Simulated assay, not measured.
Amino acid sequence: MNQPKAYGTFTKRGDHTFRKSAYIQWGDSEQSLGACLLLNPGSADFNKINPNLKVELNTVGKAEGEIKTDPTMEQLILFLKGIYGEGASLVGRFHIYNLFSLQNAKSKNAVDQFETLVRSDEYEIRESLIPLEELQSHPWILTGWGVEQNPNWKNLEQIKGMWMSLIDESKVPTFGKKHKNSNNYYHPCPLIPTRRPEIVADLLAAYKQMLESISSNPV
């Protein structure tokens, strides 16, 4: 399999850093291999992400380029290997979308910050949404924004609904490991490393189930 590389686009507003887009690239093709919808980008530590981008970001307020793969990306790479086979020669892009683009490694703190920024009009709640045509360019989308809930997270629930409405409109097949008591989906990269192989296996099973559903119910 070709060695994948990751790329990101970032902006900085005040004290906050936002990852506006990210994808994992195999080879040179721009063809989509799939996409995922997660909660938010992780750490904004550019000493780990790419120190050169940190200089550009702090100078002009935006930057884009190659970045170091983080644990979530490594999990997604394993997932793609599971779909196509360890030795397959992949060519294309896997796109990573987020419910909101604020970078913060701790999900609870990230959501609290997101809620505050939306309420203070410092962040437009629809900012993460993409054009319908872009969404329809993907063969499928994996949902995995996490299962933690809080009654105060009103804006988070709103953007989830907006994304799911967009996905429904697009007719793009979607799947994930759903929580049994809510409309939430487990994140593909658990905090406990020993649980990560299990979630990859669960997601591969969900992917297979999605394919079987499509083949038995053709449009």
Score class of each variant (00 low, 15 high):
Ile167Asn: 00
His179Phe: 07
Pro71Lys: 03
Met73Ser: 07
Leu57Met: 07
Lys160Phe: 09
Ile130Gly: 08
Ile199Val: 15
Trp140Thr: 05
Val147Asn: 05
Ser89Met: 09
Gly65Cys: 12
Asn155Val: 05
Lys48Val: 14
Val147Pro: 05
Ser182Asp: 09
Asn150Thr: 05
Glu115Gly: 06
Cys36Tyr: 04
Lys154Pro: 06
Asn40Gln: 12
Gly176Ser: 08
Glu122Ala: 01
Glu134Ala: 08
Thr11Leu: 12
Cys189Phe: 11
Val147Cys: 13
Tyr23Asp: 12
Pro173Val: 06
Leu37Val: 07
Val91Lys: 14
Gln25Trp: 02
Tyr185Phe: 15
Glu212Ala: 11
Tyr7His: 10
Ile167Ser: 01
Tyr186Val: 03
Ile214Asp: 09
Ala105Leu: 13
Asn58Leu: 09
Arg195Asn: 14
Glu64Met: 15
Leu33Thr: 08
Leu90Arg: 14
Glu122Arg: 09
Lys106Pro: 07
Glu157His: 11
His179Asn: 12
Pro173Asn: 02
Leu39Phe: 03
Ile77Arg: 01
Asp28Glu: 05
Gly65Leu: 09
Ile192Asp: 15
Glu124His: 15
Phe46Cys: 04
Phe94Asn: 06
Asn52Thr: 11
Asn40Trp: 10
Leu90Lys: 10
Lys54Ser: 14
Leu211Asp: 11
Phe18Leu: 15
Pro4Tyr: 09
Met73Ala: 13
Asp112Leu: 10
Ser165Leu: 04
Lys62Cys: 12
Asn150Gln: 01
Lys180Cys: 07
Ile49Ala: 02
Glu115Ile: 02
Ser32Asp: 03
Ala110Gln: 01
Ile199Leu: 15
Ala105Ile: 10
Leu78Trp: 08
Trp163Arg: 01
Glu157Leu: 12
Glu115Tyr: 01
Phe10Asp: 00
Ser120Ile: 01
Leu78Cys: 13
Asn40Leu: 04
Lys180Pro: 04
Pro131Gln: 04
Ala205Arg: 10
Asn2Ile: 08
Asn50Met: 02
Ile141Asn: 05
Asp121Tyr: 07
Tyr207Met: 13
Leu80Met: 15
Ser120Trp: 01
Ala205Asn: 12
Asn150Arg: 01
Asn58Phe: 07
Thr143Pro: 03
Glu86Gly: 01
Leu76Trp: 08
Lys12Val: 07
Ile167Gly: 00
Gly65Ser: 14
Phe175Arg: 04
Gln31Lys: 13
Pro197Glu: 03
Pro4Ile: 14
Tyr84Ile: 06
Glu124Ile: 15
Ile49Thr: 00
Leu78Gln: 15
Ser170Gly: 07
Asn40Ile: 07
Ile77Ala: 06
Val91Gln: 13
Ser170Phe: 03
Ser43Pro: 00
Leu39Asn: 05
Tyr185Met: 12
Glu122Lys: 11
His16Arg: 12
Ile24Cys: 09
Leu156Pro: 01
Pro51Leu: 00
Gly92Glu: 03
Leu129Pro: 08
Glu124Gly: 11
Pro51Cys: 00
Ala201Val: 11
Thr174Trp: 04
Asn50His: 13
Asn183Ile: 00
Lys108Tyr: 08
Leu204Ile: 10
Gln113Thr: 11
Pro151Val: 00
Val55Gln: 02
Glu124Cys: 12
Pro131Ala: 08
Asp70Lys: 13
Gly27Cys: 00
Ile141Met: 15
Thr143Tyr: 01
Leu99Lys: 05
Pro218Ala: 00
Ser120Glu: 12
Ser29Phe: 07
Arg126Ile: 10
Ser128Glu: 10
Glu66Gln: 15
Ser170Ile: 06
Glu212Asp: 14
Ile199His: 10
Lys12Asn: 07
Ser32Cys: 06
Trp145Thr: 02
Glu124Thr: 13
